[in-house]
Amino acid sequence: MTAATTVVGSWRTASARAWSGAVPPTVLLSFAVLLVVLLWSLLPGVFATQDPVNGVPADKLLGPSAAHWFGTDHLGRDLFARVVHGTASSVTSALVAVTIGVVVGGAIGLVAGSAGGWTDVVLARVVDVLLAIPSFLLAVVIVSSLGFETVNAAIATGVSAVAVFARVMRAEVIKTRRAVFVEASVLQGGSRAHVLLRHVLPNASRSLLALAVLQFGLSILVIAGLAFLGYGDPPPASDWGLLVSSGKDYPTAPWLVYAPALVVVATVLSVNRISRWLRRTA
C-alpha cells in the first residue's frame, strides 16, 4: 500500500543519482594515466627495452625520435628507458611518504579529536610545531640528518605531511562525533570504542582518503624537488626529479628537462583530478 508507492518513488531518485554520479571522462583518463605509471613501475623492462644505465656514447644528446621517444642524454642513454626505470622509485617513495602521513597524522588526529581535553591541547601544539616549520625546509633538514637517499627523502616528506593529516583527521573526528547518528548509536547501547571504530572512523576516513590521494601528488613533487637538489639517490639512479636536474645542464637539449617534467606533470595532474572527484562524490 503506502509503502509500495514510496518504494517506487525512490527507485527513480536512486537511479537518477546513479546516472548523475557517472565517472566523468577526465577522471577515466586520469585513471588510465595512473595505470600506465603503475605498469611502468611494476614491469619497467616490458615498456622500455633499452638499457637505462649503460648508453651508447655515439648516440649522445639525440633529440626525440622513433628510436628514442624522449631522446638521449649526454652518455647516449635512452631517456624514455631512464624515465620508465625511475618510475618505481619515484612512485614508491611518494607512497611511503603518504603512508607515514596517513598513519601517524591520522592517529594523532584521531586521538586528539576523540580524547579532547588536555590530550587535545597537547597534540594540537605538537601539530602546530610541525606546521610551523616550512615543510620543504623540514624535509631538507630531516633528509640531511638521515643521509642523502631516496628512502630518507620519502621519510622526510612523510614527516612533513603529518601535520596536514592530523589536522584534517581531528576536524573530521570532531565533526562526526557531534553528528546525530553518533548520539543515536550511544542511545542504542553503543560503547565508546564501538562508536569510535564503527561510526566515527569510517565517516572521517572519507575525507582522509581524498586528502591522501592529493598528498600523493604533492609528495611526488616534494620528492622530485629533493632529488632535484641532489638529496636523493645519486646517479645512475633515474628518479624523475634527478633526471630534470641533470638535464638542466644541457640547455641545447631541452627534452632532457621537459620529457621527465611532462611525465611528472601528467601523473600529478591525474592524481589531483581523482582527488577532486573523490571529494565531490564523498
Binding site: 546525530v180 547518528f181 548509536s185 542504542q188 547501547g189 560503547s191 565517516n203 572519507r206
Partner: peptide
Amino acid sequence: YQNPFTSLDPTWRVERLVREPLDR
C-alpha cells in the same frame, strides 16, 4: 530524531542500521 538525514550513519546499510541495537 527529528531529521532522518542526520540520524542514520551514511556509511551503513539499512539492515545493519536496524540491527545495531540488537547487536549492542
